[in-house]
Structure formats: structure tokens, C-alpha cells
Design a protein around this nucleic acid. Structure first.
Lengths: 324, 324
DNA sequence: TTGAAAGCGGTACCAA
DNA sequence: TTGGTACCGCTTTCAA
């Protein structure tokens, strides 16, 4: 038994011949070591968890793919947890992760804080914060440069001639939403046309975008550019603008944030700030796995760059094919 | 120890007082039973696996949510496996599932067959086939009525006055694609205008839809209706039709299949055959869990009904707001 | 280089 | 109704 164990764990002190015999026997018997037993005996389960708010929001599957692909490469499995951004579901999952002896966690969350992660720290389970860091001191973090992205978006709208630019901001509890808003404010506050009523808060989804546009258009008859805090809101915004009879981009230009592929589906296609979604997931997974392997111990912050993707929704004056 | 175990497992033979003492102690010590140890000792891990082809295709997160919600309700966790529809990834996952002592499996796959699932049967791990059954005899199956849906789609296109209806069919290796094609053929073959060149095969994705439309329009100058085998293809088809200068629905009407929410995002919105996606996932999970609990033993087939959702892409002659 | 034996943290049977 | 104890399948000393 002990020798078989040594073979499985590639322990050096095994005679080559014995090793071969064991390997052959394992194949003949279709033997597969039980992860449970190994885990119980103190070994890693080779499983990491990924906690995301909602798998139905196309941004997250992108991240998940990045995480999963890297994990697979290093022979790790991914346990996916949908939290619905609900604190109680997150807590419940954190317990489950410990019960199931998960090796590490990548988490995207607005609700979780140090205290909640304390039990994981005690159990020596490393954590990587993805996309929405609540703390950049004690945890490794992977995120993109939200503020810069917002600045790029607004400057692009200005460059194409927009004279009054509104912002649909995500909920304040999202770090990402706050940073993007700050980026927007940083630029527009220099202009005389700027008033706080140009910022409309909404949920990070399609419906949120629709509602915000309705309010914005009602309150500010002369806006000619909108920077939406994420692509789903931009999608909703576009839909609603068309419904209100606005021409996009000639009446109102529109720029989103994220770079999800849906933005290429609409008519016109939506200009957006593209985050390296897949790469963010991959980077988070790589960091976590290296920590698990003991290859890195310090915490580190990885801020990935975003990119402006110019599409029809900000190409004023261009003739586009008719949609209907 | 034994008594604590009894309390955890709600064994009846425990004195109420003792039980209380144990519960209090567990709380004070923040005691959480190890799933691994329980699993090793022969208990269920309360975890089921869901194998899907690709989490990035919006159809699957919908299913996954259904599965997950029901699982959560019954205190089960879901281990998500992305197979990319690749046989080798599926095989590798099937092994992992056994190593990790997963209790049951819900699988959506074109590649897996009886033989591959044999080890699971041996290990007494129940399996439910979802969406794409390869066998309806020996496994419980949850799927929707694809053939009927296709018939509804074509009849709807006929009803609005289409005189020549093409079909973009998914890859033949998908049962779902075959059934929908059969539904289409069943109706159209009665008409004198029908020729096999009205069927174009393509991948079940946006790009597939685009390519198919290009070919269809080139080969059949007079088609005025298209039934796409799934919504992603319909999305691509719409995009390409607009690019080719076709008016949808007036020149060519379009109907998809699945009912994913993206079809509401386009201009015009796309008519589709809606599958009860979430319910399919939920039904599969429920069936599996009941099997695990021993509440059902026989295999059963659940065929859920689909529904025609009429939208702009088949509302000929209606004025729609301009998109650009 | 190998085998024997003591855990890992539970469950379940048996006797008390 | 409770406690003692032999596993579950593997890892890891310790001796041989």
C-alpha cells in the first residue's frame, strides 16, 4: 500500500521495476485513487472555487472560461458558485468550501469583507479578489483599469464632437461603478455644461439602461452623448433611445464598458471600452494556483489595461444599413 | 463521537437534552463536519455534476440556473463541467467525477454514449440526459419538443404569407438539429416550391447564421422566410440580412429557436420558438435528486412544450422605429 | 527501498 | 439512549 502511494505521489524512493509493476497493476485493475481519501489524509483536492454573482450575465462566463482553462492546464478543477450577489448565499458557499476542503478561492463580490474571509485565512485557504477588490492590502487582486477606461470613453465622445455627455452609472456599492463614475467626472467637471443631473444611477443590467435613458432624456433635452457604465446598460440604453425616436449616433452617441460580444449584435454596433475579460480570469487562476504551489507568497495587484473599441454607435454621420 | 454523528444525521435515538447540548457545543466550537470524511465513510457528498458544452452560449447558463436553484433547494451543490463539446474533455471529467465521489450527473452531450457511462453505472451514479438524449431507454431524459417547435415556426411563417421558406439547420450530430430539420421538412415538402437547397447546414452559433444566410440568398433569390435552427444562428442571420440590404421582415421574415433573451435586443426583435430553458434544467435536477433519494427508480422521459413568441422579425408591414 | 501501523474525521454496528 | 470500536482509502512516519 505504502509503495503504491509513493508511486502515485511520484516519491523518489521507489525502485524503477517496482514502480512499473505498480503502474501495470493499476491499469489492469482500473484503479483510480479516491480524492476523498487523499484529501482526508491531508493532501490537496486540486480544486479551486470561483464565486461569481450571476452566470447569466455574459461578462462572467468570460471570466469563468479564463479561470477554467488555466485551472485545467494545471490539473485543477473549478467549483463554480453563483452568489446572485446575495450576502447570505455567499456566506453559505464559504462554509461549503471549507467543508469540502476546497484548496483556494477566486471571488467576485461586493458583499464579502475581511471578516467573512477570516475562516478561510485560518484554514489556510488562499483567496484572490477578482474585478471588485474590497481590499488591496491583504489579498491578491486582479482587476482592470476602470478609471482610465472611463476617461478614454469620455474623451472619445468629446473627440467626435459631443457637447453634452451624460453618464449612466452602476450602483454605488460596486467599486467598478464608482471608479468609472470618477473617471467620467474627472473629465466633464472641467466643462461649463456639466451638471450632476447628467449622472443617472441604475442597475448594471439592460433594464437599468432603459430606465436611465428615459430619465436622462426627460431631464436633459440637449445631451448628445452617453457613457454607460457597462455594456448591458448600454444595450438597454440603445434599445430605449431607438424607441424614443433618437438616432444613434447622430442625435446621441453611445459608449459602453466591458467589451462583451453582444455589443456587436445591435444596429448600430456599440462602441465600448473592452476589458481583457478572459485574461483577467486566467490571471486570477494563475495567481491562485501559484500561491497553492507555494511559488508565490506575497500578495500582488494586477491591473490590466482596457481598450477603446470604436463602432457604429459613435461614428456620427456614417450611413448605416437600414434595420427595418 | 457516535452521538454527535447521530445528531448530525438526525438519527432518532438521541435524547432531546443531549441533542441540545451537542448543538450548542457545535456552535461554540464552530464545528463543521467534513464532507470528505463523511464521503469516505460511505455517505453522499450531496454534490451533483452538470456537464455542458459551453458556458458562453447563453442557452446553457439558463439551464444551469435551473439545475442550480433546484439543487440548492435540496441542499445539493453543483459541480459545473465545461466540455466544449470535446469528447476527450468529457471523458476526463467522467473520471474526475468518480474520483471525487460525485453523487449524480446531468449531462448535455453529443459525444458521450452508453459505453462511456458504463463506469458510472457500475459505481451506481445515476445520470440524467438533458436536451440531447442519445438514448431514451436506459436513462432518464429531459428535453423539449423540438419537432413540434419547428412545425410551429414554419406554420407561422406560412401564416404571415411567406411563399418560400428556407431553413438554417444545425450540425447533424445534434439530435436537436435533426429533429428541427425534420419538423421543417415535414411541412415544406408538401409545397411545390420546396427544394433541398433551401436547407443550409451551419454551426449553432452567430457566425454559422451569417454564413448560411450568405449562401441561401446567393442560391435562392426569392426566399422570403427563414427558419433558423437556433437563436444564435438567427442573430447572425439577421445581422447578415441587414448587411445585405434586406428588410426584415418585409423582404425576408425570420424565426429562431430557443428563446434566449438576446433575441429581444435586436432591431427588429426576433420571433422565436421558446423552450422552457430554466424549467428543463430544474426538471433534470429534480429527477436526478429524486433518484438519489431513492424516491424514483425507473427511468422516465420528460418532454417539455415549446411556445411561439411572435416579434418584429415576422410582423410584416409594421412600421418599426428607425435604428440609425 | 519496502512494509507495518497510526492517523485524517467521520459512520455504523454492537454492547452496555 | 449512549459509548466503544472497526472500518472508509489514502498518506506518512518509523523500522526493518
Amino acid at each position: 500500500m505504502a509503495t503504491v502511494s509513493r508511486v502515485i505521489n511520484k516519491n523518489e524512493y521507489v525502485n524503477k521495476e517496482t514502480e512499473q509493476k505498480v503502474i501495470v497493476a493499476m491499469q489492469e485493475l482500473h484503479y483510480e485513487p479516491s480524492s476523498l481519501a487523499r484529501g482526508l489524509a491531508g493532501k490537496k483536492m486540486n480544486t479551486i472555487a470561483l464565486m461569481i454573482p450571476d452566470i447569466s450575465n455574459p461578462f462572467f462566463p468570460g471570466l469563468a472560461r479564463g479561470v477554467e482553462d488555466v485551472a485545467q492546464q494545471y490539473d485543477f478543477n473549478v467549483f463554480l458558485c453563483n452568489s446572485d450577489d446575495l450576502a447570505y448565499k455567499e456566506k453559505s458557499y464559504l462554509e461549503i468550501l471549507r467543508k469540502k476542503s476546497i484548496d483556494g478561492l477566486i471571488i467576485i463580490s461586493n458583499n464579502v469583507n475581511e471578516e467573512e474571509l477570516e475562516p478561510l485565512r485560518m484554514a489556510n485557504i488562499p483567496v484572490v479578489l477578482l474585478d471588485r477588490p474590497f481590499n488591496e492590502q491583504n489579498y491578491s487582486v486582479v482587476r482592470s483599469n476602470n478609471r482610465n477606461g472611463a476617461i478614454m470613453a469620455v474623451e472619445h465622445l468629446l473627440a467626435i464632437g459631443c457637447k453634452k455627455i451624460a453618464h449612466i452609472a452602476g450602483p454605488e456599492k460596486f467599486v467598478t461603478a464608482r471608479e468609472r463614475r470618477l473617471g467620467y467626472e474627472g473629465i466633464v467637471s472641467q466643462y461649463s455644461w456639466y451638471t450632476p443631473s447628467l449622472i443617472e444611477h441604475a442597475n448594471f443590467d439592460i433594464e437599468g439602461g432603459k430606465q436611465a435613458v428615459t430619465k436622462l432624456v426627460a431631464n436633459n433635452t440637449d445631451i448628445d452623448g452617453i457613457f454607460a457604465g457597462n455594456d448591458l446598460m448600454a444595450l438597454g440604453a440603445l434599445k430605449q433611445l431607438i424607441k424614443l425616436g433618437k438616432n444613434v449616433p447622430d442625435d446621441i452617441a453611445l459608449c459602453g464598458f466591458d467589451g462583451i460580444s453582444l455589443t456587436e449584435l445591435t444596429q448600430p454596433e456599440i462602441t465600448t471600452i473592452q476589458q481583457p475579460i478572459y485574461e483577467m480570469g486566467a490571471a486570477a487562476a494563475l495567481t491562485l494556483i501559484k500561491k497553492l504551489k507555494g511559488e508565490i507568497t506575497e500578495t500582488k495587484i494586477q491591473e490590466l489595461d482596457v481598450k477603446l473599441i470604436i463602432r457604429g454607435s459613435t461614428e456620427k454621420g456614417k450611413k448605416l444599413p437600414l434595420a427595418t
